[in-house]
Computed example of a mutant assay.
Amino acid sequence: MMKILQALFFPPEQPGGVSSMVPYINQKFQAMGWDMELFSLPKRIRGKGTEHHEFATFDWTQYSGRPVVDKYMQTLRDYLWFARMRLRNASYDLIHAHHPIAALVMRRLFPDTPVLMTVHSSYERELVLNGRIEDQGPEHRFLTSLYRELEHQTNMIITVSHSFKSYIAQYVDRPEDIRVIMNGFDPNRFKPVENVNDVPQIVTLCRLVPAKGLDVLLQALSIVKKRGHAFVLHLIGDGPIRKELEEMAIRLGIYDETIFYGYMLHPEELMPFFDLFVLPSRAEAFGNVFAEAALCRLALVGTDVGGIAEQIESGVNGLLVPVDDVHALADAIEKMLTDGEFRLRMAHAAYERAKEKSSIARVIGDLEEVYLSYRASYI
């Protein structure tokens, strides 16, 4: 059987997203008899790398001197420094990277080994939405140039939604070659329960950054409260705008209805006891948390954007609203809170769809097909 390296950026013990999904993939393949291991950059490794790095498709030095670019390049050097030391005597039949830095470093260290790259999210869009870089500015151009570099340096680009494939297409030469494999989750992690609370319990789970649209959520809930509806909002996660959100909740008169949990290691253990999951993101490549909430059998309300719209069919297994539309979000939440039969129907439909479409078994099958297509390279 093939020997495969799954190259992460964040350590696998990090909660959420890629860092929680890939270890499950690794375990499933190992249980099937595959020789597979994980690699990531420890959080303590900072400022160690000194090797010069050049890209094949663009000159990154034209963007140097800007904090985002300089930090990105230093992180690449750090990853290269650690990987060169840690993987000095290693050999693999295939490498599957889950971050651009991991893919570029692995190509440099293993030039004769097939390297696949799954692009899970758009760092540049997150930075723009969070107000850290300017749209179409130099940092944005640097980060979007990496897509063509990845196309040049890897054997295959995979991404997690058709929407995100369309986004990447504008930055590469052969968009038709991009493969879409939507994320999947181990259903054993989730323990849905039949649960209806006297006061509807709303939950959202994300990093507290502007890109997640939590300001829109709080404004919408203030409208819902003014319409006379009771609720409790459970806001799980932490981030740089937590204090701003707390102050906003006070100003809008919904602080008493809002619980700020901060960081939580295993939120899926708590989520089944809520009634409704809401996250009005301004952008999502896939939106793992919607699939996870669905597997907890929660009703879903999200924005009609990116991978969210590929998981929710509005009125069938949840509700979709336009990005930044406070009143539409308030109306959707009100519908879910006041029509218990509709909410339960949406929750069960979301659960059934997630079991079918977001199964880890489906992901394993898709990846196995891709991996085996490279067997000829080492037979």
Rank of each mutant, 00 (worst) to 15 (best):
G239C: 12
E247Y: 14
L127N: 06
K335C: 13
H234N: 11
D186C: 11
Y92P: 03
A328C: 08
P138M: 04
Y147S: 06
A169T: 08
F342Q: 06
V370K: 02
L329Q: 01
Q14E: 14
Q219R: 11
E149K: 05
L221S: 03
P240F: 12
L205H: 05
M182T: 11
L344V: 10
Q311L: 00
E268A: 04
S163D: 11
D78I: 14
E244K: 15
Q311E: 09
R44W: 13
F190T: 06
R125V: 13
L38Q: 02
A97S: 04
D78S: 12
V105T: 09
K48I: 14
F142M: 06
E369N: 06
S19W: 09
Q136S: 14
D70I: 01
S145Q: 07
L298T: 02
A350E: 01
F290C: 00
N195K: 15
D304V: 06
V321A: 07
Y92T: 03
L221P: 03
N26M: 05
R88L: 14
L214T: 07
E134K: 13
A249L: 08
F277K: 00
Y24W: 15
F110R: 01
R375C: 13
K357I: 09
M2G: 05
Y374K: 04
R282E: 06
N155S: 10
G302E: 01
N89D: 14
K355Y: 08
A332E: 00
S163E: 09
G306H: 02
V370E: 05
I25T: 03
M264S: 10
I101Y: 13
L76T: 07
G47L: 09
A332S: 05
H234P: 07
G16C: 12
F110V: 05
M21D: 10
E244N: 14
E246M: 10
M21R: 09
D215G: 14
H348I: 12
E51Q: 12
L205Q: 04
V232R: 15
S40C: 11
H327F: 13
F185C: 06
D93G: 03
L214D: 07
N155D: 09
D35A: 02
Y147H: 07
F286Q: 01
F290T: 01
M2C: 00
F274D: 10
I241K: 06
M156Y: 04
V321Y: 00
R88W: 11
P192G: 05
Y263Q: 08
E352F: 12
E368S: 09
V289Y: 04
C206N: 12
M106L: 08
H140M: 13
G287R: 02
M271T: 05
D177V: 00
R107P: 03
L329P: 04
S161F: 03
I157M: 01
Y24R: 15
I379K: 15
L270K: 13
S314G: 02
V128T: 08
D366T: 05
V224H: 03
E284I: 04
F164L: 02
D177I: 03
I379L: 14
H96I: 08
S358T: 04
G33N: 03
F58Y: 07
D256I: 11
I181E: 00
E247D: 14
L344S: 12
V278T: 07
R251I: 07
A102T: 05
R343Y: 02
L146Y: 08
